[in-house]
Simulated assay, not measured.
Amino acid sequence: MLFRNFRRNAIGALLSLSLLATVGCGDTVTEQRCTSESQELCEARPLNSTVFITPQQALEYRDAGALVLDARSLEKYEAGHIPGAVHTLGGKEFQDELGLVIPDLVALTETARNLGINNDQKIVVYGDNISSNTGRLFWTLEYLGHGDVYFVIEGYETILAETGEEPATEATVPEKGDFVVALRDSVWASAEEVKEAAEGTKPAILIDTRREGEWYGDEDRGDPRQGAIPNASWYYWENVYDETTGKLRPKDELRAEFESLGLFEEDTLIIPYCQTGVRSTIVYAVFRWLGHNNVKNYDGSWAEWSRDNDLPIVDHEPEASEPTE
């Protein structure tokens, strides 16, 4: 049974029927996909095509009024952060106990507003230099319907080094925002469509972004089943970074690599996944940056897939090395 989607739809339907849950600023839940009575606000804002910005651009956006969100740990934030940045849990504040986006639109809206998120304000997200949490926060905000989110993939230390910005230690307390959640299903992959892709009945490219041990089923993350989703290809998420510099590899280099591996086809749906849809968001963001317009993150990922015995799995065997003389 695809319990995650049942739960998501059931709660959405209850919210739609009630029409009673007030979320502030005069907005009420009127349909499953949105938390406003305004038809205009109930449409996800168009996605920007920029995706990644430089450290210098991040400060320019901040100075022009953008909201800056820090996806690092609270300990690191308190030790020093970009002045004006608001601390977040790296997207975890929007997740349920299994690590998936909660299906409660009112709670999602309230959480976003408490971070200071507004409908018509740019958002800049940053974290550690190689940080899947920052990717998760970036993808979550796009899924919730915001279209003006920008990702500083280089990370906090690089921002300081390249801009000379002096860190702040006093926490930024944001004013409550007015953001209205309007779920963008075009970036959210369901278990049903992943199952269709796994069975070959839906044209799609599945990308497993986990560690090699997880892909082969040797690393136990506490799930009831180990292995991989059938018909998926393995590409470790950290491979998008340069091993020497830790920075994102050049655009043309990454695209050429994905094409050579058969992972980049213009008109084919791309679905990356991992354990709980966190590491896979880096690959999601990279494909968006490369100009692919049909990429979805599988939010449920292995945490959901492994718990549904009706969903198929495959056990991969490591390639045997050639004997040496």
Rank of each mutant, 00 (worst) to 15 (best):
C25Y: 14
P323G: 03
T281Y: 03
C274W: 01
L311A: 08
S233Y: 11
A198P: 06
S301I: 08
E257Q: 12
T50I: 15
Y61Q: 11
Y235K: 12
C34H: 10
D310W: 10
Q226L: 15
T50E: 15
Y143F: 11
N231L: 01
E192H: 13
S36D: 05
H316T: 07
L206M: 03
D308Y: 13
G116A: 07
S38L: 03
V68M: 01
T276Y: 01
D242N: 11
A228H: 14
G65K: 06
K195S: 10
G116N: 04
E214P: 09
W237Q: 04
A168G: 00
T140A: 06
V187K: 01
F6K: 15
K195C: 10
I53E: 03
A10Y: 13
Y273A: 02
G80H: 04
T134M: 04
F151E: 06
I229A: 03
G217K: 11
Y150W: 05
I205D: 00
E165T: 14
E37R: 10
P318M: 11
S73D: 00
G291T: 10
P167Y: 05
V194Q: 05
L59Y: 00
S306R: 08
S16R: 11
D178Q: 08
V283G: 02
E93S: 02
D315P: 07
Q226W: 08
T245N: 01
T35D: 06
T244C: 00
L100K: 12
G145P: 02
K122A: 14
G65V: 09
L105M: 14
F264T: 06
T30M: 05
E97F: 08
L20G: 10
L74P: 03
E214H: 14
E253M: 10
N118I: 05
I270S: 08
D299H: 12
A189L: 05
T268Q: 10
Y156I: 03
R255A: 07
G12F: 07
L89Q: 02
L41I: 07
S38E: 02
E110Q: 13
P203R: 13
T281S: 07
G116P: 00
